[in-house]
């Protein structure tokens, strides 16, 4: 498992420094939590890592490669893939087709092969379907493979997003609030799922508001506030960290009271 390194990353939107001088590393074999109040820049960090935005300063390296110079689909090919805070499936496609779309970057055959239906094309399609089937089984979605993705219940749509991401054969998975809208039972299942993803040799960067999930799952946690890192450490340390308590609960003084989004 490679290491994902962010060094002194910054991005501005107009006058707003959405992310400012941020450095952290996602180590091999770890689940790293990224938390912070609303608007702290967590999703912006995801967008920077996955190439949606280009950082105005700093570097993002992965396995020795400079990710910040690659296009989003090249970053997926390099092994870093994400899910979305608001589910973004290909709604009119079937469950299986969604996962097959994730196989795109690991397959080769192009237009000519498809038009002539060459032996290579048929072999690749068969292998892809097999791999997609494995991923669907892993997420318990195999029996739903021919359903239209948009017709799945919410919880399964979240799972399908993870399935589509895993179909790209990532080595690093970024999950953007995967437990949003889940009941406690579903959250526990999700935690088991993320652990088994780690067991498959994929390290995980997790943005999550549900503190039970973050504290129960993450090896380390990075806390953001207003685009800056205010704390980093193991969950137990983070929970006692005075800066974190101030950021989440507000202890008065210098306008910090406006920040009341809490766990």
């Amino acid at each position: 498992m490679p290491e994902l390194n962010l060094t002194d990353i910054g991005i501005r939107f107009g006058g707003l420094r959405a992310v400012d001088g941020l450095s952290f590393a996602l180590e091999p074999g770890e689940i790293l939590g990224l938390i912070g109040p609303n608007g702290a820049g967590k999703t912006t960090v995801f967008n920077l890592i996955t190439g949606v935005y280009r950082p105005h300063g700093g570097a993002i390296t992965y396995d020795g490669r400079a990710l910040h110079r690659l296009l989003p689909h090249q970053i997926v090919a390099a092994g870093v893939v994400r899910t979305f805070q608001n589910i973004r499936l290909f709604k009119a496609m079937t469950v299986l087709e969604n996962v097959l779309a994730g196989r795109h970057c690991r397959t080769r055959v192009g237009v000519v092969g498809a038009l002539l239906r060459t032996a290579a094309q048929r072999r690749e399609e068969r292998e892809s379907a097999e791999r997609a089937g494995e991923v669907l089984s892993f997420l318990g979605l195999y029996h739903k493979r021919d359903e239209i993705a948009g017709n799945l219940p919410y919880g399964l749509q979240r799972r399908l997003e993870i399935a589509r991401a895993l179909a790209t054969e990532p080595r690093t998975l970024l999950l953007d609030e995967p437990a949003a809208g889940m009941n406690p039972q579903e959250s526990r299942e999700l935690m088991d799922l993320i652990r088994s993803i780690l067991d498959r040799g994929i390290n995980v960067l997790l943005v999550e508001h549900d503190m039970k999930v973050v504290m129960g799952l993450c090896h380390r946690v990075v806390v953001l506030e207003s685009g800056r890192k205010i704390a980093e450490g193991e969950p137990a340390e983070i929970q006692r960290h005075p800066e974190v308590i101030r950021a989440y609960l507000g202890t008065g003084g210098r306008g910090a009271r406006t920040q009341v989004a809490g766990p």
Partner: peptide, 16 residues
Amino acid sequence: ISIREDETAAELTGIP
């Protein structure tokens, strides 16, 4: 089809 459905998600799923 994935581009028709959601171009951004397609790019971030590894489709050029």
